[in-house]
């Protein structure tokens, strides 16, 4: 078995080489919030954080993540307390069907870590690695800006 650190805890996955990280997270660990749609790195639904960087887990082998820290959507909330980004997506309704939402939230986390006070245009470009087929984009941009605001408040509180 291979040991990964997922959402702060060590976990075991199969040590098969020929499996993607997305498959391991969904099938071995039951983390269904890792959404897989296109399976070719285009849609961004399967985005997870690997050592705090956003990556499309469908284009990464599970074994490549060995020894790395992985965060999935399941690791964002603290019990019933939603992460400010999740809260912001709810408040601005930055989603419709919700399938792309976990990937977008993780992309947002990485994006805001690098650019905590972005402009709307920067957000718009920064979120372009995730497709929202329902077309919630303008509300996604608002949600990310709102999240920046909420996180800023949390940081200064």
């Amino acid at each position: 078995m291979t040991v990964l650190k997922v959402n702060g805890r060590p976990v075991e996955i199969s040590n098969r080489g020929d499996r993607t990280l997305a498959t391991a997270l969904r099938e071995d660990l039951g983390l269904i919030g890792v959404r897989v749609s296109c399976a070719e790195g285009e849609c961004g639904s399967c985005t997870v954080l690997v050592d705090n960087k956003p990556m499309t887990s469908c284009l990464m082998l599970a074994q490549q993540a060995k020894g790395k820290e992985i965060v999935t959507i399941e690791g964002m909330a603290n019990g019933d307390d939603l992460h400010p980004i999740q809260q912001a997506f709810i408040e601005e309704q930055g989603f419709q069907c919700g399938f792309c939402t976990p990937g977008l939230i993780l992309s947002t986390k990485a994006f805001l870590a690098e650019n905590p006070n972005p402009t709307a245009d920067e957000v718009s470009v920064g979120m372009s690695g995730n497709i929202c087929r329902c077309g919630a984009y303008p509300y996604i941009v608002k949600a990310v800006l709102k999240a920046a605001e909420l996180m800023d408040e949390t940081a200064t509180a």
Binding site: E40, A120, S124, V125, S128, I131, G135, Y137, P138
Partner: peptide, 18 residues
Amino acid sequence: GNLLDYKLLRCADFPHTT
């Protein structure tokens, strides 16, 4: 039959000011 060559609009393709 893939999202590389079936082009869907992305966030920056549509005005966020709409």
